[in-house]
């Protein structure tokens, strides 16, 4: 009983984490299902056929590839724009700072339906064709702010003395940027880009408004939800989830091990 009282917060914390993963576990389990009818909702019979034939249903892999394409394009452009803004915000004083902060914050605070529908209103009014470019434009718009936030945090966390030391050691502003600032901020930029890609890849609402007849991976799932989502979709989603998780954990683990090694080295010297 006392043990319970003392560890109650830890127990709740673990339960909340479990809660976060229950639906994902369901998706993973259902990817090995042989559904009875067309709806893959209750587990019927174990089968690996969806995994063996992951592109077996027409449209699934095409939509998946399309989402990756849009994600990459939008991420690259948004990362460049967002990084530039973050540098301006952290490194420069300028008039209009408040409006800039606001303009960056608002897209994050606006519900996706509003973002998606307002862009659609614009595209309809200027008769801009819906589809690939409309969606890519929309994705750049809504992920730029997240990139700014992530890169800005990294920049603010950087010791300003490092750049001063570089200037003190004969590095011109350009050389300081190239040899000190950029290498130090790069991990932050890459992290931000990863986040941007994840947001774009998984976006449904904004995409749905501006895709026209184009079918991205989330749009495919939405459409399939009415007539039954193919098991292949579950397999693909599970694959993406575990690959990303492993990637992130490996990066984390490497960092942690390196940190521990450093601490040990410092302690022993």
């Amino acid at each position: 009983m006392r043990w319970l009282r003392r560890n109650i917060i830890g127990i709740i914390a673990v339960l909340v984490l479990v809660y976060l993963f229950v639906p994902i576990a369901v998706v993973a389990v259902l990817s090995f299902n042989q559904p009875e009818g067309k709806y893959n909702v209750t587990f019927n019979e174990f089968s690996v056929s969806a995994w063996q034939n992951i592109c077996g249903v027409p449209g699934v892999c095409e939509s998946f590839a399309l989402s990756i394409q849009i994600g990459l394009l939008a991420t690259v452009i948004a990362t460049i724009f967002g990084t530039m803004i973050a540098f301006a915000l952290v490194r420069y004083r300028f008039r209009g700072r408040d409006s800039t902060n606001l303009l960056i914050f608002l897209p994050m605070a606006t519900p996706e339906v509003v973002l998606g529908s307002s862009l659609l209103a614009l595209f309809l009014n200027i008769t801009f064709p819906l589809g690939f470019w409309a969606v890519t434009i929309a994705h750049i718009m809504f992920i730029v702010s997240f990139i700014v936030v992530a890169v800005k945090a990294r920049l603010q966390g950087m010791d300003p003395r490092l750049e001063e030391a570089s200037r003190d050691l004969y590095a011109s502003p350009r050389a300081t940027f190239r040899y000190v600032t950029f290498p130090l901020v790069l991990p932050g930029i890459l992290g931000a880009a990863l986040l941007g890609f994840a947001l774009s890849f998984d976006d449904f609402i904004i995409t749905f408004f501006n895709a026209g007849t184009m079918v991205t991976f989330p749009v495919y799932i939405w459409g399939a939800a009415q007539r039954g989502i193919p098991v292949q979709v579950y397999a693909l989603a599970t694959l993406v989830f575990f690959l990303s998780l492993v990637l992130v954990l490996v990066v984390q683990g490497v960092n942690a091990r390196r940190r521990r090694r450093l601490e040990a080295a410092v302690a022993s010297s």
């Binding site: 989502i229 599970t238 990303s244 998780l245």
Partner: peptide, 13 residues
């Protein structure tokens, strides 16, 4: 980590 799994599928689950 849940962000790595499809929003729609998680909801559907």
């Amino acid at each position: 980590a849940p962000f790595f799994a499809s929003f729609l599928l998680r909801t559907y689950a």
